[in-house]
Design a protein around this nucleic acid. Structure first.
Length: 569
RNA sequence: CGGGGUAUGGCGCAGUCUGGUAGCGCGUCUGCUUUGGGAGCAGAAGGUCAACGGUUCAAAUCCGUUUACCCCGACCA
């Protein structure tokens, strides 16, 4: 591709709307343009990358025997009413009417449509297992689209659905998908992790997420190098501390802590380490009242774990000031487990503390030197907190690491949730009707493009992994308009590399060297070769990998073959 | 949906408080010069100042209404 023929507008300045690196760089390098909130046009350069992700994904789907189909983007309301999700899916579902006032939605996902296909087409267990996939535009009316294409309302997703007689078959195919997804991200050259995940609203028994590691990721993921444990933070168990609790020391006394409402203020004021100050959160209970959750001051409550406890209301909500006053007869900030007459759950780590500080259930007062079993009853300990870096791994292989990740794939064992609500059955070998087991598997194509940039960039621009780059090599011809030798050499190199199967971007624009070099860094192709009068005098071209600090000189005569070897993919 | 902010040429911004001929940088076009890290000079095109309504001799500027977009939060296969 000749850059002079590509209507590419790179921006020197970043549009004001862009916050994170991938969004900024995608706008600056001309990969995408925004149409409206959460809606983007994919320009030639960006679309080439999206197509690469599609291609790799399609190949891996075909390798595990999934069949590609294309379902409608617009779905009739009846189907969604049948599954119950016309209401349950909420405002994320974009609803519309046609001229006949019939109701439709723009598909945010396709369980309903595929289950309808399956119940019509599949009659016998002999046709199972079978799996279908499509690569298609989805629309979810997100409350707050952000981060460019990372959380757009309209986006491209590869979604797959599998159908089975029996859970064993589902489990087998689920394993195939897990491998196929791993291969996709492996081939794309991304640093990723597969983690246990919450199956959430969609239901089902088992699910895993694929995360591309990046500091800007919205999710926290936890894993251990020494074993195969890996999970989304919301699911990661926090094990009880090892060893015996310290022995009680001095008697419990009351301390004056005027106006200290945060645990940090209290710890500082009492000159205690944060982990020795226990915080007591009062949260709303199912059907009124409150429940107390006690954690170490340096630990965070885990919503999924907390709402899993009996009595605790879902979603997790802190009690208001009035409810706090009623339960503990003090303002928020001074609540403690001593003589507290509501149901109290204590996190394992908090239950392991001795001689700790906590709220005294009186305004401006905290207790110090408090001990379980002495000043208050032995606690009922449960796992309540988010795991933290360095915790023991549940897999037993060492300590946990934590990193931020961007969710680019999610695979589920759905079971019979949809086949039951929509009555999708086949006849088994005894001629009896059975609800099919289902799996569903999503991979965010456009989000993967953004995640790749998020993981691979520097202050100058994008650094594409070899496999994802829109072109693998750029020829930067300096002063091409004035120097015949440069033009001839560059043209010849361009032709040779193309004939050797390299995807080449040829910067043949009549622009200044600074502009061309800056654009090359911004666009971020892995291989760059500079053709200049200066080099040609010595019979050399200059080669540089986007990740390398320094350039190397290649003999002009041998350059084409050498570069073709490096850049062919 | 709650809170905060913004809207002026393709992009980034000033001008608004204190009403009086709409400006700067980048980009674009033409010409000449220049050419290894976003060149120089000369010239040019391009804006109903988000929309609607009001006040005024006069509104980008003051008042009102609306819309769009962004940020934080809640939300989120």
């Amino acid at each position: 591709m000749r850059l002079s023929k590509l209507p590419l507008a790179t921006l020197r300045e970043t549009p004001a709307e862009a916050e994170i690196a991938s969004h900024r760089l995608m706008l600056r390098s001309g990969m995408v343009r925004r149409l409206a909130s959460g809606l983007f046009t994919w320009m030639p350069l960006g679309w080439r990358v999206a197509r690469i992700v599609e291609r790799v994904t399609r190949q891996e789907m075909e390798r595990i025997g999934a069949h590609e189909i294309l379902m409608p983007a617009v779905h009739p309301a009846e189907l969604w009413r049948e599954s119950g999700r016309w209401e349950d899916y909420g405002d994320l579902l974009l609803k519309m009417r046609d001229r006949g006032e019939r109701e439709y939605c723009f598909g945010p996902t396709h369980e309903e449509v595929i289950t309808d296909i399956a119940r019509r087409e599949l009659r016998s267990y002999r046709q199972l297992p079978v799996s279908f996939f499509q690569i298609q535009t989805k629309f979810r009316d997100e409350i707050r689209p952000r981060f460019g294409v990372m959380r757009a309302r309209e986006f491209i997703m590869k979604d797959s659905y599998s159908f089975h007689l029996g859970e064993e078959s589902l489990s087998d195919i689920y394993g195939d998908y897990r491998q196929a997804y791993s291969r996709v991200f492996e081939r794309l050259g991304l640093n990723y992790r597969v983690v246990q995940a919450d199956s959430g609203e969609i239901g089902g028994s088992r699910s895993q997420e694929f995360h591309v590691l990046a500091d800007s990721g919205e999710d926290l993921i936890v894993w251990c190098e020494g074993d195969d444990f890996a999970a989304n933070l919301e699911l990661a168990p926090a094990l009880p501390p090892e060893g015996d609790r310290e022995a009680p020391g001095d008697a419990m006394t009351e301390a004056h802590t005027p106006g200290m409402r945060t645990i940090r203020q209290v710890a500082e004021h009492l000159d205690q380490p944060l982990e020795n100050c226990l915080k007591t959160l009062l949260v709303k209970a199912e059907g009124g009242g409150v429940v107390a959750l006690v954690l170490r001051g340096d630990h965070e409550v885990n919503e999924l774990k907390a709402t899993g406890l009996p009595e605790v209301a879902k979603p997790l909500a802190l009690a208001n000031a009035q409810e706090v006053a009623q339960a503990a007869s003090c303002p928020p900030g001074f609540v403690g487990p001593v003589n507290l007459s509501v149901t109290t759950y204590v996190d394992h780590a908090a239950g392991h503390r001795a001689n700790f500080a906590c709220g005294a259930n009186r305004r401006d007062k905290h207790f110090v030197n408090v001990n379980w079993g002495r000043d208050l009853p032995e606690p009922e300990c449960v796992d309540l907190r988010n795991a933290v870096e360095g915790d023991r791994s549940p897999g037993g292989g060492g300590s946990l690491q934590i990193a931020r990740g961007i969710e680019v794939g999610h695979i589920f064992q759905l079971g019979d949730k949809y086949s039951r609500s929509m009555n999708a059955v086949v006849l088994d070998e005894n001629g009896a009707e059975q609800h099919m087991q289902m799996g569903c598997y999503g991979l965010g194509v456009t989000r993967t493009v953004a995640a790749a940039i998020e993981q691979n960039h520097d202050e100058r621009g994008i650094i594409w992994p070899e496999a994802m780059a829109p072109f693998s090599l750029v020829i930067v011809a300096l002063n091409i308009a004035r120097d015949e030798e440069v033009r001839a050499t560059a043209e010849q190199l361009y032709a040779e590399l193309q004939s050797q199967g390299v995807e080449v971007l040829f910067d043949d624009r009549d622009a200044s060297p600074g502009v061309k070099l800056a654009d090359a860094d911004l666009i971020g192709l892995p291989h760059r070769v500079v053709v200049s009068a200066r080099g040609l005098k010595q019979g050399t071209l200059e080669y540089k990998h986007r990740r390398a600090d320094d350039a190397e000189r290649l003999s002009a005569a041998e350059a084409a073959d050498l570069l073709a070897d490096r850049a062919r993919r």
